[in-house]
Design a protein around this nucleic acid. Structure first.
Length: 421
DNA sequence: TCTGGGGTCCTAGGACCC
DNA sequence: TCTGGGGTCCTAGGACCC
């Protein structure tokens, strides 16, 4: 039986989360900043209208934002993550087949029906989420994931549709002709630029482009995108989030440049601790780790250096202390004096489930520090991440960035529950 | 002064093997 | 005189996503 894809997407999700607990923000321009208060990663419609661009550096739009009294928030992931779960929970109650794609998006799939029936269903879902969670969403229907994305975009951008749009089959081409090729899911700025120079400017042009040409210039992924525009479904629907992640990363840009090895090691130790904690939460061990460091590429006048090193671990491990040990050694090899460093990071790869790991004949169980790590995680879960940590992560942490505009974790921390007077 | 962080997939090219 | 070719694995780099 023919099926249809739908995409539910939360409108300006992070901003909507902030508004939920501060109704005074309704109707006013609001933005949310990236992890380090560096870039703008979410904007309300009012902020978009002021011309504030996605990903723009905060300091560059500061004046404009002050002039228009834009409300600015540091990102509050515990809050967004919790509200995301609530939205996805409701969708999963209403729809049997759900494919959660990101923190604010989920595909669902249903039997192809009359457009009016799809529209009614979409309206019902939208109203239910709005009522039970309070987050506004848009829903688009199309015969492939890529077309559902386009439908969603139209639902969001053209208010007359009331947040729901079903891509019609009859004049699909006329609609695709109005979509710039760079707005198609999977076509980024680089490909977009290249396509333009070859005269492919709209989604319709891409749909009609030559397969051999696409394969050559955009690789197999670009060809798949074109096929999807033709209504041939190439992107799988993944109901179970089964193909679990293959790597765990932790990194941050520094609040101020770091020049010495010991400062870098402190920061790296802190990031390794975070990554190891994530690893243990998923009951995994890493067989390999990669350390990288880089100077500030935006500073033209300064000498630049970036490098990375991959280390195969003697045994897969999830021990913070063992991982810090190997990461520090890699860092020592990578480090060159005389540079102002901006960032270090660690990537854990070759992940194996703890239960599937090969037992090592000559390795004592206590070397894994399983009980120590379990205690560490328990304490830090209860009292906060920094309660118990490796001494190598330092105490003063001059490299640490501050998030000065963070709203409370209203829904996930007892200490920060909103108070009703 | 101040420019995110965490992921995935694909390809080309080198190393290595027989 | 004359020096293969195909398969596999690994890695770096590029592009994309939210």
């Amino acid at each position: 039986m023919a099926q249809i894809f739908a995409l539910l997407d939360c409108n300006n999700f992070y901003v909507s989360c902030e508004r939920l607990f501060s109704p005074r923000l309704e109707g006013r321009p609001v933005v949310v900043l990236s992890n380090n208060d560096g870039c703008i990663i979410a904007r309300s419609n009012e902020a978009k209208e002021l011309g504030i661009k996605m990903g723009a550096p905060f300091f560059q739009c500061r004046e404009l934002m002050e002039a228009h009294q834009v409300q600015v928030f540091s990102s509050n992931y515990p809050l967004y993550g919790d509200l995301s779960q609530r939205v996805m929970g409701i969708l999963s109650q209403l729809e049997p087949e759900v494919d959660i794609y990101s923190i604010d998006e989920a595909f669902f799939r249903q039997a192809k029906g009359k457009p009016q029936a799809l529209l009614d269903n979409g309206r019902h879902i939208r109203a239910t989420v709005r009522k039970q969670v309070g987050i506004p969403v848009s829903i688009g229907f199309g015969s492939t994931k890529t077309l559902a994305k386009i439908a969603n975009r139209i639902a969001k951008k053209q208010p007359e549709h009331g947040g729901i749009f079903v891509l019609p089959e009859e004049n699909l081409e006329a609609i695709l002709a109005t979509i710039e090729v760079g707005e198609v899911w999977g076509i980024g700025p680089r490909h977009s630029q290249k396509l333009f120079t070859y005269g492919i400017r709209t989604a319709l042009d891409l749909k009609n482009a030559n397969d051999t040409w696409l394969r050559k210039h955009l690789t197999i992924t670009g060809l798949r995108t074109a096929m999807e525009l033709r209504g041939v479904s190439c992107l799988p629907f993944e109901e179970v989030p089964a193909p679990r992640r293959k790597s765990v990363t932790s990194s941050r840009s520094f609040g101020q440049p770091v020049t010495d090895l010991s400062g870098l090691r402190e920061a790296l130790s802190a990031y390794v601790s975070i990554a190891a904690e994530k690893l243990r939460a998923e009951h995994k061990k890493a067989g390999c780790l990669q350390v990288y460091l880089t100077t500030n590429r935006f500073r033209d006048g300064e000498p630049q250096y970036a490098n990375s090193l991959t280390v195969n671990l003697p045994n897969p491990t999830a021990s913070t202390l063992a991982l810090i040990h190997h990461a520090s050694e890699a860092l020592r090899q990578l480090y060159r004096p005389g540079f102002s460093y901006r960032k270090v990071g660690v990537i854990l790869v070759d992940l194996v489930a703890s239960s599937h790991e090969q037992q090592h004949l000559f390795r004592a169980k206590h070397e894994e520090q399983g009980e120590l790590m379990a205690a560490l995680d328990k304490i830090n879960r209860r009292w906060g991440r920094d309660t118990l940590q490796s001494g190598s992560a330092g105490f003063k942490r001059p490299w640490k960035n501050k998030q000065t505009r963070k709203s409370p974790s209203y829904t996930t921390s007892w200490h920060e529950l909103p108070v009703v007077r």
